[in-house]
Structure formats: C-alpha cells, structure tokens
Design a protein around this nucleic acid. Sequence first.
DNA 1: AGTGCGATTGACT
DNA 2: GTCAATCGCACTA
Length: 183
Amino acid sequence: MSAADRCVTLARSELPVDTVLSGRIVETEAYPVGDAAGHAYVGMTPRNRALFLSRGHAYVYRAYGASLLLNVSSETVGVGAGVLIRALEPLEGIPAMQRNRSVRDLRDLTRGPGRLTIALDIDLRLDGADLCRTGPLRLARDGHVAPEIGVSARIGLSRETDKLLRFYLRGNPFVSGPKKLSP
DNA sequence: AGTGCGATTGACT
DNA sequence: GTCAATCGCACTA
C-alpha cells in the first residue's frame, strides 16, 4: 500500500426505513490463497462459496453462534480468498446505527467485525451480494486519502498467528483490538 | 447422527 | 483481567 491509497466506504441501503448507513473502513484482515487460517483453505463448501466469487462480493458467515462477520472476496472466479472487514468509522445514518446496536457511544458502534454487521443491519441474506454494483450493500472510494497504514498480526486466530496481514489506519479511534496491535 | 470448534462479544471477578 | 453463550458447519463413522 502507498500513502496515496484512497479510503473505502461501506454503505448499506434498501432498508425498510429509507436510510443510508455508511462507514469508512479503517481496519481489515487478509485471508489470501493458501492461508491455512482462511475459510477457503479446505476448498469450496456451502458456507464459504462466496469467497470463490469474483473480487468484490460479500461473504457473510456466523462465528461463535452469535456474531455475523463480513468479508469481501478478493480473487477471480473459482479462487477462494477474502478480506475481513474488522472496523468502520461511522459516517452516515448514525442514529439508526445507534438503535440497531443499542449503544450511544460512537466509538463502540462499529469497532469490531461482529459489531459493524449489527450496526449496518447486515445478515446472511447478503451473503454473495455484489458490492461493486448498485444494491443493498456497496463499496466505494470515498475520496479521503488514507493516512499511515499500520500492519500487525491478525486477531483471534489459533493458526498462522505470525503472518502480518491485519491492516488499519494508524491512530484512528475506531480501530479494534488491543493497543499493542494498534499503536 | 454425533461431535467439536471457532476470523467474537458482553458480562462479570 | 477471565469466561460462557451459541449455532452453523465441517468432519468422522
């Protein structure tokens, strides 16, 4: 990555209430081809099939029985890989996000992969959705130039813990994880 | 058909 | 700081 990289915004629309909920992506983790910690590592299954769609499709899955996590597929058709969206900086629709999460504090609204899906009302029906075309969930460059990008090990894994594949906007208060990993 | 296990969170000591 | 909740899915038989 370079300092000229543009920030990316994730936007949720077509909700029952006519609102757009959006946030700037401030933290991600990569799960590239051949990564033993990636869900695609075992080959295509009913759960992970969206990882094998072309770049820019949503892979939504349930973790620990409770949380829904959002990934973006990152390779060509038939190749399984993705990027986990770990945190957003809230931009639009903040009151609606506060209702979805039953939380007021802006900092707690979308800091964490399982929290941001609740804030944006993302569910399993969005699994496989194309995020690069008009639809209920969209990715878009937001014009903001990214500041320095921090790199660290990924969070919550039991394998491949040495790989530095977590990326975040350094100093951004909406980044999740222990301070040690987000200085 | 049964078992084991998380790319987490929130509640609690 | 610790720890249990919770369920879809992958894996074994």
